[in-house]
Amino acid sequence: MHFTTHKTWHLLEFLLQRSAFPVGIVHGEEPLTTDDWGYGPPRYVAPDRVQLAADILQQTTYDQLIQDVDPSELAKAEIYPQIWDSPASMEWARDLFTPLTEFFRGAASTGHAVLIWLD
């Protein structure tokens, strides 16, 4: 199973951290190796943490994540890419949030860990 956030990884990370999401699903949590696979070494999320992420993602909507976020907040935080010039820019990652939720739900349903890296 494979999932890509494309270039929305930084926005998703910002939104999830802002909402106090308890699992590191953008960069992973535990190192797999010290070898650089692109933007650092790959990391993974253990099966029990994948289950926790899946459970919380299932109860979270994209609208909840972007609620009260001002695009200027993203610009100030230098969230990649620098496209935060209007409220409409907040919609950029909406189409990836449901597949992200489904990906974690699928991994959790089979008891799998999730390997994560940015390249």
Results as ranks from 00 to 15, higher is better:
His2Ala: 08
Phe3Met: 12
Thr4Tyr: 13
Thr4Leu: 06
Thr4Gly: 14
Thr5Asp: 01
Thr5Gly: 06
Trp9His: 14
Trp9Gly: 13
His10Pro: 00
His10Met: 06
His10Asn: 14
Leu11Thr: 01
Leu12Glu: 00
Leu15Trp: 09
Leu15Ile: 09
Leu16Trp: 05
Leu16His: 02
Leu16Asn: 05
Gln17Lys: 14
Arg18Gly: 05
Arg18Tyr: 00
Ser19Leu: 07
Ala20Arg: 14
Phe21Gly: 04
Phe21Cys: 04
Val23Trp: 05
Val26Thr: 09
His27Glu: 05
His27Leu: 07
Gly28Cys: 03
Gly28Phe: 02
Gly28Asn: 01
Glu29Cys: 06
Pro31Trp: 07
Pro31Thr: 09
Thr34Leu: 10
Thr34Cys: 09
Asp35Phe: 09
Asp36Cys: 12
Gly38Pro: 05
Gly38Tyr: 06
Tyr39Arg: 13
Gly40Val: 01
Gly40His: 07
Pro41His: 05
Pro41Glu: 02
Arg43Ile: 04
Arg43Val: 04
Tyr44Gly: 03
Tyr44Phe: 10
Val45Ile: 04
Ala46Ile: 06
Asp48Gly: 05
Arg49Leu: 07
Val50Leu: 04
Gln51Ala: 12
Leu52Arg: 12
Ala53Asn: 04
Leu57Ile: 06
Leu57Thr: 01
Gln58Pro: 08
Gln58Phe: 09
Gln59Lys: 15
Gln59Phe: 11
Thr60Ser: 07
Tyr62Asp: 04
Asp63Phe: 10
Asp63Gln: 15
Leu65Val: 00
Gln67His: 10
Gln67Ile: 00
Asp68Asn: 10
Asp68Ala: 06
Asp68Leu: 00
Asp68Arg: 10
Asp68Phe: 03
Asp68Gln: 07
Val69Phe: 10
Val69Ser: 09
Val69Pro: 06
Ser72Trp: 11
Glu73Met: 13
Glu73Cys: 12
Leu74Gln: 00
Ala75Gly: 15
Ala75Trp: 07
Glu78Trp: 13
Glu78Ser: 15
Glu78Leu: 11
Glu78Val: 12
Tyr80Asp: 05
Pro81Leu: 02
Gln82Met: 07
Ile83Asp: 01
Ile83Trp: 04
Trp84His: 03
Asp85Phe: 15
Asp85Ala: 07
Ser86Cys: 12
Pro87Met: 03
Ala88Trp: 03
Ser89Tyr: 08
Ser89Asp: 03
Ser89Val: 06
Met90Gln: 09
Met90Phe: 06
Glu91Lys: 15
Glu91Gln: 13
Glu91Met: 08
Trp92Thr: 11
Trp92His: 13
Trp92Tyr: 15
Ala93Asp: 03
Arg94Lys: 14
Asp95Pro: 15
Asp95Glu: 13
Leu96Met: 12
Leu96His: 11
Phe97Lys: 03
Phe97Ser: 02
Thr98Cys: 10
Pro99Asn: 08
Thr101Lys: 11
Thr101Gln: 11
Thr101Tyr: 05
Glu102Val: 02
Phe103Ile: 02
Phe104Glu: 01
Phe104Trp: 02
Arg105Tyr: 06
Gly106Lys: 13
Ala107Asp: 00
Thr110Arg: 15
Thr110Met: 10
Thr110His: 11
Gly111Ile: 05
Gly111Lys: 09
Ala113Asp: 04
Val114Cys: 11
Leu115Gly: 08
Trp117Phe: 13
Trp117Thr: 03
Leu118Trp: 11
Leu118His: 15
Asp119Tyr: 12
